[in-house]
């Protein structure tokens, strides 16, 4: 405990010194989890970002060394507690059909491998782009006869973390063409729209000023390859749409609702800005 807070203090001091000069550089350190899983936290930007960004960086690179370290070992990563809880739920029958997730999907290590990396994803039957949360609730209501979970409820976010973990170390690769394209365009428009009384867009902070300090916060590119994220600040797992809501609120704007078509579109677009970074979930941030 003592050591950690001491470390944090030293890191904060180091960051301040950096902050006083030019924009603080991203780290050269490599993210390796449990000494074995290598995670790509820097990659060439996908083609659709030509002219906007050359290199994409995971939010992990912008955190202090102490915070970065917590994510390198699953025994230290508090996000894993929620994953374990979801593993139990995975095997527990619920709803009128008497089925659990395992009844249809067996072992998530096999059935869910690579799933997170391609979500949000076009669903042909429903003719819509679906997030993982939407797909989970579709299984609950239509296949299990169970109640839908709240979009950012703890149980939902934990289940998303369990599923995402099965893609850890695999590159994000969401499709933005074909039937998903119009949703992607809508998300792009939202990303560049300056909202609220502060008139700020996502791009103002995360494209134009990543690497800069905004008050005491070191701005990242706002990538979502690490979600769900365990935040030291609120000591829980955080869903993508909860983070979006917080950032929109901070522009003194009326937010969109988690699970709304707007945030689904924004999620597809932001995910596509991270095409090439590896899935990290559950990641650790401050």
């Amino acid at each position: 405990m003592m050591t950690t807070s001491l470390k944090t203090m030293i890191c904060t001091a180091a960051m301040l010194t950096l902050g006083a000069g030019a924009a603080a550089a991203q780290t050269d350190e490599k993210l390796v989890v449990n000494g074995e899983t290598e995670i790509t936290t820097q990659a060439p930007a996908p083609a659709h970002l030509d002219g906007a960004l050359d290199t994409i960086y995971s939010g992990w690179e912008f955190r202090s060394p102490a915070t970065r370290e917590v994510q390198m070992d699953d025994f230290d990563n508090p996000g894993m507690i929620f994953v374990d809880q979801a593993r139990q739920v995975w095997n527990t029958a619920d709803g009128s059909e008497g089925k659990s997730c395992a009844s249809c999907h067996d072992d998530p290590a096999q059935s869910m491998k690579g799933v997170r990396a391609v979500y949000p994803k076009w669903n042909e039957d429903a003719q819509e782009v679906r997030t993982l949360e939407m797909q989970i609730n579709d299984c609950r209501t239509n296949r299990m006869g169970a109640e839908a979970w709240g979009y950012t409820d703890k149980g939902m976010t934990s289940m998303v973390a369990l599923i995402s973990l099965q893609s850890r170390g695999m590159p994000v690769n969401v499709a933005i063409d074909g039937p998903a394209q119009s949703t992607w365009e809508k998300g792009k428009e939202l990303y560049y729209t300056r909202t609220g009384q502060l008139e700020l867009s996502c791009a103002n902070c995360h494209e134009d000023h990543y690497g800069d300090m905004i008050r005491a916060d070191h701005l990242s590119q706002g990538q979502i390859n690490g979600f769900p994220v365990y935040r030291l600040k609120n000591a829980k797992l955080n869903a993508v749409h909860s983070r979006f809501k917080g950032c929109v609120r901070d522009t003194r704007a009326e937010t969109y609702k988690p699970g709304s078509p707007e945030f689904v579109a924004l999620e597809l677009y932001v995910a596509s800005r991270g095409n090439g970074l590896d899935v990290e979930a559950p990641s650790v941030r401050n």
């Binding site: 729209t193 300056r194 909202t195 609220g196 009384q197 502060l198 008139e199 700020l200 103002n204 134009d208 000023h209 809501k245 929109v248 609120r249 901070d250 522009t251 003194r252 704007a253 009326e254 937010t255």
Partner: peptide, 22 residues
């Protein structure tokens, strides 16, 4: 990027302070 500190109209989705409400 600097906010306009003495302006009252012309915003997109203006909110009540930092509440997230319209």
């Amino acid at each position: 990027m600097m906010p306009s500190f003495y302006k009252t109209t012309g915003y997109i989705r203006p909110g009540k302070g930092f509440t997230g409400k319209a």
